[in-house]
Amino acid sequence: MASIRKHRDKWQVRIRRAGLQPLSKSFSLRKDGAEWARQMEVKADRAELPTDLKALQRITLADLVVRYRDTVSVKKRGYENERISLTAFLHHPICSKRLSDLRTEDFAAYRDQMLQTVKPTSLKRYLDPIHNLFEVARHEWGVPLRDNPLGRLKLKAPSQRRERRLLSGEWERILEAARLCRNPWIEPIIRLALATGMRRGEVLALEDNQIDLERRSLLIRKTKNGHARTIPLTVEAVRILGQLLRGRLGPLFPITRNAFRLAWERLRERADLGDFHFHDLRHEAISRFFELGLNPPEVALISGHRDMRQLFRYTHPLREGIIDKMDRSTS
């Protein structure tokens, strides 16, 4: 905030704002001083003035990471994975740097070092919360950072778009391998994922009070985009859920996310699935919904997509099916 006072035969203007270096200048005319003060206030609003290095010298990157992990990440649905990632990041020497000394060049060196052991897509996933951390620090915590040091960091990651669908015989091998699992919940989880197109976390979080078999509907309260949705159930989904609900209250699947992840990895190796991921069952289900003749709004109601462009990324009709339709249209 600017202050103007008469000092001898001059008008002295001082500007003080939290996180910025104090500014002062003298003028012969008061109106010139007031005009300069307005210009400096505008620059301050635009983050164009020098930051207060003393404030940044008191804070290390580790201080921000710990605060972000314990106050922001903890509120996220994917907190456990992000907590592990951020805690591991704290052991890197870059976290001992003070914010006054931290530059994009430091993260470029970190990027180059990490790329020797991890893929670009994995590194991007690790850096996403760090990038968001600086945005929160700048805009919500009042940390006087002029810009985000990760904002100009270049990291080219290949597209994660997948077109993997079940090949002939793979579904049978998946079920056969699932029946060999010691955990009895693996097979119904996999069957339900394909019958509904639900995400892994949505399936694992299911409870009995979300299901209405009479109306053939299922309420998904916690979703990736934060919007609850009610989906219609296929005959197969009703059959699976009917068996699971017999005499059960509360959670349908008493298994942790990590336990299921490990079980799936063993199953995938046993069934010789190659690069088939569990999330590909969602791709398969959505593609099958379209092949059944459902239109995009109807499929979006089931999948939960609010952006049609994202929905179509999950849609991979089998080429054989397209060829059959083309042949029928010309016969």
Results as ranks from 00 to 15, higher is better:
residue 306 R to N: 09
residue 300 A to P: 07
residue 87 T to L: 11
residue 73 S to Q: 05
residue 191 R to T: 07
residue 195 A to I: 12
residue 165 R to T: 14
residue 105 E to D: 13
residue 140 E to R: 13
residue 129 P to D: 08
residue 12 Q to G: 00
residue 329 S to R: 15
residue 281 L to Y: 09
residue 40 M to I: 13
residue 123 L to Q: 10
residue 200 R to N: 11
residue 62 A to S: 14
residue 229 R to L: 14
residue 221 R to W: 08
residue 163 E to P: 07
residue 165 R to V: 12
residue 256 T to W: 08
residue 114 M to L: 08
residue 63 D to Y: 02
residue 25 K to Q: 13
residue 227 H to P: 00
residue 14 R to G: 00
residue 96 S to L: 03
residue 309 R to P: 04
residue 227 H to S: 04
residue 91 H to C: 07
residue 107 F to K: 01
residue 132 N to A: 15
residue 189 I to S: 08
residue 98 R to L: 04
residue 281 L to D: 09
residue 326 M to W: 12
residue 275 D to L: 14
residue 22 P to L: 03
residue 236 E to M: 08
residue 14 R to L: 01
residue 262 L to K: 09
residue 111 R to V: 03
residue 249 L to Q: 14
residue 281 L to N: 09
residue 37 A to N: 05
residue 217 S to E: 15
residue 88 A to H: 11
residue 288 R to G: 09
residue 210 Q to W: 10
residue 301 L to G: 09
residue 63 D to A: 02
residue 267 L to S: 01
residue 158 P to W: 01
residue 62 A to D: 03
residue 23 L to R: 14
residue 316 H to Q: 12
residue 304 G to A: 11
residue 197 G to Y: 12
residue 144 P to F: 06
residue 244 L to E: 14
residue 257 R to D: 15
residue 147 D to H: 15
residue 32 D to V: 04
residue 323 I to D: 07
residue 257 R to F: 07
residue 265 E to N: 15
residue 108 A to P: 05
residue 217 S to V: 14
residue 328 R to N: 05
residue 169 G to I: 06
residue 311 L to T: 05
